[in-house]
């Protein structure tokens, strides 16, 4: 499957991936409007790990055997057999946070901005042309493809 690969050796820790991830998941897709005026505030699905000088972005790995899916009590998380993506169906999410605890990478984020607590995760910018984090990485530290060598 196509997914996002990270290159820690060229990650500069700017967090632009997270900024644009939030924009990608905003209603307006307008960076200023999304951050300053949208309620609830859009949140990024990608986290940036930092222990300087090491930094790297960490989006969902879309694991072959996803712990989050096994932990989900409501069937909101599932592995899409066709695309290979780990998908989150928000309508079924009960906000129990089992997946948050199960994910070994810390890639699932609890949405505290909304009244009804639900989790958020990377959907590889489903519905958009190309993952925003990859497109906006200024240093080529995030790439998209089936293998690391064959990435755009």
């Amino acid at each position: 499957m196509e997914r996002v690969f990270v290159k820690p050796e060229v990650c500069i820790g700017c967090h632009l991936c997270a900024v644009w991830c939030a924009v990608a998941h905003s209603r307006s897709k307008n960076i200023i409007k999304a951050f300053l005026y949208e309620e609830p505030r859009p949140l990024p699905r990608v986290i940036v790990e930092e222990r300087l000088p090491l930094t790297f972005a960490l989006p969902c790995r879309h694991c072959a055997e996803p712990d989050c899916v096994f932990a989900c009590i409501s069937g909101a998380l599932y592995k899409d057999r066709q695309t290979g993506r780990v998908v989150h169906d928000a309508s079924r999410c009960v906000g129990c946070c089992s997946c948050v605890m199960a994910c070994p990478y810390g890639c699932i984020i609890l949405n505290n901005e909304e009244e009804e607590k639900k989790v958020l995760k990377c959907d590889l910018c489903a519905g958009l042309e190309f993952p925003y984090c990859v497109r906006h990485c200024p240093n080529g530290a995030l790439v998209y493809g089936s293998t690391k060598g064959d990435c755009r």
Binding site: I12, G13, C14, H15, V19, I32
Partner: peptide
Amino acid sequence: EERCIRCRVCERQ
């Protein structure tokens, strides 16, 4: 200020 989204990219760079 009307354009700043407090993303702190400037601070990190």
